[in-house]
Nucleic acid binder design. Sequence first.
DNA 1: TCTGGGGTCCTAGGACCC
DNA 2: TCTGGGGTCCTAGGACCC
Length: 385
Amino acid sequence: MNAISRRIAHLDMDAFYASVELLRYPELTGLPVVIGGRSKHKPALQTDGSRHFYKLRDYAGRGVITTATYEARASGVHSGMGVMKAAQLAPDAILLPADFERFRHYSRLFKAAVARVATEIENTGIDEIYIDLSELPEGSLMLAKKIKQAVLEATGLTCSIGIAPNKLLAKICSDLDKPDGISIIGMSDIADRIWPLSVRKINGIGPKAAKKLASLGITTIAALAQAEPEFLQAHFSRSYSIWLLEVSHGIDNRPVKTYSEPKSISRETTFEQDLHPRHDRPVLSKAFTALCIRVAEDLQRKAYAGRTVGIKLRFEDFQTVTRDFTLSTHTNDPAAIRQAATECLRRVALEKKLRLLGVRVSTLVPIDSVQTTEILRQGVLPLST
DNA sequence: TCTGGGGTCCTAGGACCC
DNA sequence: TCTGGGGTCCTAGGACCC
């Protein structure tokens, strides 16, 4: 493979969760629709055969918007926004609960469709992938059209594709002509197409870094590209400064990774109301056990065992703490996980109400065949001591 | 009406070993 | 009596992504 002439596509499904739900409820097409909130608010079938949909104004409680249709985005609603805030902006938007099983199904469908056109695929989320097109003979525009057509035929859904010499640029590029677009750029287009954009368009510059850059007078990628290395290093770490300058010039050598092992498996839950560590202890304990069981089920279903068990607590003031504990052997046994997680819990001062509780298992190893029973047996051992 | 859930990666200090 | 230095593991927190 020639690193100099790579050709990488980034494919991003358009408003994925919402679009999947519109396939099921086509009568909502063209309306502002958001996915989010908790699992009530499922559309109810009425006696006249029509469906009743909940609107954002009907919602009360915790949660965020995971996806908004373009019609809802026009009101200023976007993913990550609290549902209650979104309700102020778009009270008449239709609210649908997330159906992850369905989303995963459509995710598999679109990825399989792409794989029939190009095999070198990196999964980066339920609704997006990178594709290495370097070894294919066809032109980029032709490939992009073929892939979009394959996705549409397999799912009825549209996507946007960016093609560029690396993942960094491809990712930025797929967002240039959304929805249902194709953008193709080369290194010679960076000054015209990339530099005018906000630094936030760079995958890896989040709210914190963008804010700090803005305080230094840097908001566009062009301004970042013109910054002196010494100036950046006075405000950021050396490695981050070097990376900032590289990405501002469109440099990125990361390969498309067609396979990766999971590093951790976790489950967490935000309570409807903050819970008091002593007064609500029975409820907390039940939730805690349920999380351990779910993590163990996930591990067993995916055929992994882990050696480090961790907990995550979020207090009423949103302060978040984690603790973890490494066992002498790998386990995927719910009782062993709960015991280790309880050890972690003992090391936290519980003085405030709890908003969130989570359990995580990391340092994973695949449990193939012969080792399985041994790992399971050893994993349970600490319980009996 | 603040702020979900599932992840990855990085940093940094201390323990421990050679 | 002044304390090297590299490597790895463990732990905690934080930024970031979808």
